[in-house]
Amino acid sequence: MRHVEKQPDVTKTKPLTEPVVFILLSLADEPRHGYALMKDIEALSGGRVRLRTGTLYGALRRLLEEAWIERFQQSDTSREKQAYRLTSFGRKQLQLELDRMKQLTRAASSRLKTREV
């Protein structure tokens, strides 16, 4: 009998905070170190979200604990410039969050349309 993996219910997943979503999105395309993450998040959000160092590393600590991201040493950088990358579990969680957002957007759009009619 073939094992079929049950699809997680996106409505039951806990929404992620904005900094966490931006960190995961920033790490989705390539690994980055702390300051590069801050700059990329600022660019991603069009200058709206500027993460402070304390906020960024607090979020990174939580994500490391949850094993959504991992640290690794880039060969061309010093000890302090550890880079972070998304784990496959982290990528799955980001996908779940994006699905949740899509569902919310669809529901909101349909409500707005019915209101306009």
């Binding site: 801050m38 990174l60 410039k81």
Partner: peptide, 17 residues
């Protein structure tokens, strides 16, 4: 444990900023 792991990186990020 937090500062042992992150202090170096945080100081560098702050200096760059």
């Amino acid at each position: 444990d937090y500062s042992a792991l992150f202090a170096g990186e945080m100081i560098i990020a702050f200096q760059q900023g």
